[in-house]
Simulated assay, not measured.
Amino acid sequence: MTEEIIIAGFGGQGVLSMGKILAYSGIMQDEEVSWMPSYGPEMRGGTANVTVILSDERISSPYLKLYDTAIILNQQSMDKFEKTVKPGGVLIYDPNGILAHPTRTDIDIYQIDGNRLATEMGNKKVFNMIVLGGFLKIKPIVKLENVIEGLKKSLPERYHHLIPLNEKAITKGMDNIFSYKVEDQLVDH
């Protein structure tokens, strides 16, 4: 099993930490892991993405041109990464701020309204955990207990009191991800 993932959005959305938590979760499961961040110099508000590879075999290179899964959180990332999902792969996106929705019919597309759900939970900072939960519902490649361990590793200890809130956010994401059918959208317009 090898899963090659790109997570992309604005700096400040928790893109890099989502990738780091996935990577730590893979380590907890004795998998081979690669975590490769990429971001502009402006950080918050600039674009950021991270490539994560989890595998039960050695990883030959962290550089990828095509991905099994793309998690997309802004329009610039949609424009750049929709075409990089392998045929038969998965694209997950938050529709907030997306004007040009995905149009491919050779991949599975899912929508999760993480922004709205985080607002409903009263804490915008759990946005990335909601999206991560949605991803894990579609592709349960790491166990929830390992994600919690990954959170403990990636969060400074002074924030460990927020782990139960993050766990609730992951569950909320698992319960609120829905299939997006391009064909249905084309008929409506």
Results as ranks from 00 to 15, higher is better:
residue 1 M to C: 03
residue 2 T to K: 15
residue 2 T to Y: 13
residue 3 E to P: 06
residue 3 E to K: 13
residue 5 I to K: 03
residue 5 I to A: 09
residue 8 A to Q: 02
residue 14 G to R: 01
residue 16 L to F: 07
residue 17 S to R: 15
residue 19 G to P: 01
residue 27 I to T: 07
residue 35 W to V: 00
residue 35 W to K: 01
residue 36 M to N: 14
residue 40 G to Q: 07
residue 41 P to V: 10
residue 42 E to D: 11
residue 44 R to W: 01
residue 45 G to W: 03
residue 49 N to T: 05
residue 50 V to Q: 06
residue 50 V to F: 04
residue 52 V to T: 05
residue 54 L to A: 04
residue 54 L to G: 07
residue 55 S to I: 01
residue 57 E to Q: 11
residue 61 S to E: 12
residue 62 P to F: 05
residue 65 K to H: 08
residue 66 L to S: 09
residue 67 Y to I: 03
residue 68 D to Q: 03
residue 73 L to A: 07
residue 75 Q to P: 09
residue 78 M to Y: 05
residue 83 K to N: 13
residue 85 V to W: 08
residue 87 P to A: 02
residue 88 G to V: 03
residue 90 V to S: 10
residue 94 D to E: 02
residue 98 I to P: 00
residue 99 L to M: 11
residue 103 T to I: 15
residue 109 I to R: 02
residue 110 Y to P: 00
residue 112 I to M: 01
residue 112 I to P: 00
residue 115 N to S: 14
residue 115 N to F: 09
residue 115 N to L: 10
residue 117 L to F: 08
residue 117 L to M: 10
residue 117 L to A: 09
residue 118 A to G: 06
residue 122 G to Y: 13
residue 123 N to R: 15
residue 124 K to D: 07
residue 125 K to A: 14
residue 126 V to N: 07
residue 128 N to K: 03
residue 131 V to W: 00
residue 135 F to C: 10
residue 135 F to P: 11
residue 136 L to F: 06
residue 137 K to S: 10
residue 138 I to E: 09
residue 138 I to W: 07
residue 144 L to M: 11
residue 145 E to I: 04
residue 150 G to D: 07
residue 151 L to P: 05
residue 152 K to M: 11
residue 153 K to S: 14
residue 156 P to V: 01
residue 160 H to F: 00
residue 160 H to Q: 14
residue 162 L to R: 11
residue 167 E to W: 11
residue 167 E to Y: 13
residue 168 K to E: 13
residue 169 A to K: 00
residue 170 I to F: 02
residue 171 T to S: 11
residue 173 G to T: 03
residue 173 G to K: 00
residue 177 I to L: 09
residue 179 S to Y: 15
residue 183 E to H: 10
residue 187 V to E: 12
residue 188 D to G: 11
residue 189 H to M: 13
